[in-house]
């Protein structure tokens, strides 16, 4: 029974992460210039890397989301999601620490400001990604 609940939770979390990452990636792919501007506002990376991130990251989100959705390469895609979430959390915490009042750039169409709610949201997603990574690693699902 317990195993069944865990397996169901695994599937639900995997699909939620898949949907969120595909949506987040697609909205950014449509307008990389806007996303580059959002990344630049964090004042963390030199501009060269801002543009590289703006070009590559959305596709990584879509591919990882697609793989999670298809239940293929789940451990590697959830590992990358975990890494991306770690970077997002550090970036948001750093922006908050510096008192920056900026758009988070998480979803291109949304105008969510960097702040505690966004930080908590990302931490919850990080926990979800870790759960999927961990379960996939235990061989509970074909990867």
């Amino acid at each position: 029974m317990k195993q069944k609940i865990i397996n169901s939770a695994y599937t639900v979390v995997r699909l939620i992460l898949a949907g969120l990452f595909i949506y987040a990636g697609v909205t950014k792919i449509i307008n990389p210039a806007d996303f580059a501007s959002d990344v630049d506002h964090y004042r963390i990376l030199p501009y060269f890397f801002v543009t590289v991130v703006a070009v590559i990251l959305p596709w990584m989100e879509v591919i990882c989301g697609g793989l999670l959705l298809a239940n293929r390469w789940v451990q590697s895609s959830s590992l990358l999601v975990l890494l991306m979430m770690t970077v997002f959390i550090i970036a948001i915490a750093s922006a908050m620490a510096r008192g920056l009042d900026i758009e988070c750039g998480c979803f291109a169409s949304g105008a969510t400001k960097v702040g505690l709610p966004k930080l908590i949201e990302d931490i919850v997603l990080w926990i979800g990604a870790f759960f999927v990574f961990d379960r996939a690693g235990r061989g509970q699902r074909r990867i």
Binding site: P32, V55, W59, L67, S76
Partner: peptide, 22 residues
């Protein structure tokens, strides 16, 4: 996955009128 993202990203950016200049 990272390599595929880079290839797709740079290709799509080159074709996108809203793309960024690296």
């Amino acid at each position: 996955i990272i390599a595929a993202s880079a290839i797709l990203g740079f290709s799509a950016n080159a074709l996108n009128p809203n793309g960024v200049k690296i």
